[in-house]
Amino acid sequence: MQMNIVSALNNALDLAMTENEKMVLLGEDIGTDGGVFRVTDGLLSKYGESRVIDTPLAESSIVGTAIGMAIGGLFPVPELQFAGFMYLSFSQIVNHVARYRARTRSAITLPMIIRTPVSGGVRTLEHHSESPEVEYAHIGGLIVVEPSNPYDAKGLMLAAAHGKDPVIFLEPTKLYRLFKQDIPENAYEVPIGKANVIKQGDDLTIITYGTMVEVVKNVVEKRKLSAEVVDLRTINPIDEKTIIESAKKTGRVMIVHEAPLSFGVGAEISARIAEKAIFELDAPIIRVAAPSLPYPLPGDEKFYVPNELKVSKAIDKLLSE
């Protein structure tokens, strides 16, 4: 079936809701409107308004009520319309979603999937382009995934739907309709916590995820590099094994992400490689990321989001050391 990320996610949610009558979707404009990106299109008419809930415009209680629904035996899938607005629910996520299992010693668990579009490059309003993965990964207790293609989007969504943990499901806006893939019509899972080596190579390792996967792939293809490209897919818990193995194999590592440089996923990966494989490196690790400042208005975003040129120049540096 030819699908883009939007239709793959729609299909995954449809399958999950058919499998599990306890699954409910909630969020702003997700019912009649099908979501501002149409990820939930058609699900209201199929499953009814008790399972596809158009909520009042109030982000904290979208997550807060989802917590109660999960305690009450439902499997809620809250949608936060944009990652920048999701901060209004940050208190509920940090203080409760991440902690409930621990604070009740697993007596109460909160299976849920918190969905939100992330990252920029689509010339939209302020607060519609953030890449907040680290903010959720840092807390502990939250699984954070970010697919970069339709196959992974559907497979990760179904893995999350079959799991028992709260999952922060980050959907790169720019990739929603960028390309289609032929993906299976039936249910399948992409394992959570497992990175995908999307291309084998010997000369360098490029670790990336989300919007930057396409950018990295293009550079590697155009320059015909023998690069190992790792798509993390899951940010937390991080697949350290795959990262360390590849670092040891090539001896040269670059990490590419759209989120700001400082205290980012690149810093985390660099530290882990430094702890476990530093003597097997031939060159210092290089991070390519957005500058350490808040996402600008769209007029400046092409100077902010890492592009093929920025990645390519960093590769030159990595290979020259």
């Binding site: 904290s60 997550v63 807060g64 917590i67």
Partner: peptide
């Protein structure tokens, strides 16, 4: 909000 969700 948890209580409201539970009531739901």
């Amino acid at each position: 909000p948890h209580a409201a969700g539970l009531a739901y």
